[in-house]
Design a protein around this nucleic acid. Structure first.
Length: 177
DNA sequence: CGGTTTTGACCCGCGC
DNA sequence: GCGCGGGTCAAAACCG
């Protein structure tokens, strides 16, 4: 029970009063702190709008032979659209892999238009955990890495939270001014 | 050996 | 209807 959920204190007053517009990625604001923020804190954005309803996914090879269509991504036929929370963190780091204490498995990588650097897709390797994460580096500032979390972990961390605290000390979060 | 990364192909929503 | 951009899968390669 000691395992605390990694929930950032951004839900309190982050509703619509967040200083970051939905297009924060295009904002050139952070370009300004270039060299201004030794701490490496960039920004945070929470998005709760998933237009896609996650329709079933059929293998391209059609090798499915059993009814595993159950709760795969939280999508059930009779269920309503489950809006999964989305959090985007901008951090300044040389490495894309920001270890938050969870185990991730990369499942894809795509090049983003308008961006020289590709975007990596990760997924939590825990059973039943559907949390996804994607890491993107800005072409404008290669020192800036945008990590977007999708979903909420429902299981404890396997690694020591000590590591996570270490990360927290490197990044500060704009939860509420 | 098992799990993970890599990488190309496929799929889907949206705009034109 | 087609093309584009973005997201996911899956088989092989890779690493401990």
């Amino acid at each position: 029970m000691e395992n605390c959920h990694i929930l950032f204190p951004c839900s309190s007053s982050a509703s619509s009063a967040s200083p970051f517009s939905s297009n924060m990625l295009n904002s050139n604001a952070y370009t300004d702190f270039h060299g201004n923020n030794p701490n490496g804190l960039l920004g945070l954005k929470s998005d709760i709008d998933v237009p896609r309803s996650d329709v079933k996914k059929i293998s391209q090879s059609g090798s499915f032979g059993e009814s595993e269509s159950e709760v795969k991504s939280g999508k059930i036929k009779g269920e309503k659209k489950i809006k999964k929370p989305r959090f985007a963190f901008q951090t300044r780091s040389q490495v894309d892999i920001l270890d938050d204490g969870y185990r991730w498995r990369k499942y894809g990588q795509k090049a983003v238009k308008n961006n020289k650097y590709p975007r990596s897709y990760y997924r939590c390797t825990h059973q039943g955990c559907i949390v996804k994460k994607q890491v993107q580096r800005l072409s404008k500032d290669e020192a800036i890495v945008v990590t977007t979390y999708e979903g909420i972990h429902t299981h404890p961390i396997e690694k020591s939270t000590d590591n996570f605290e270490h990360i927290l000390s490197q990044m500060q979060i704009y939860s509420a001014f």
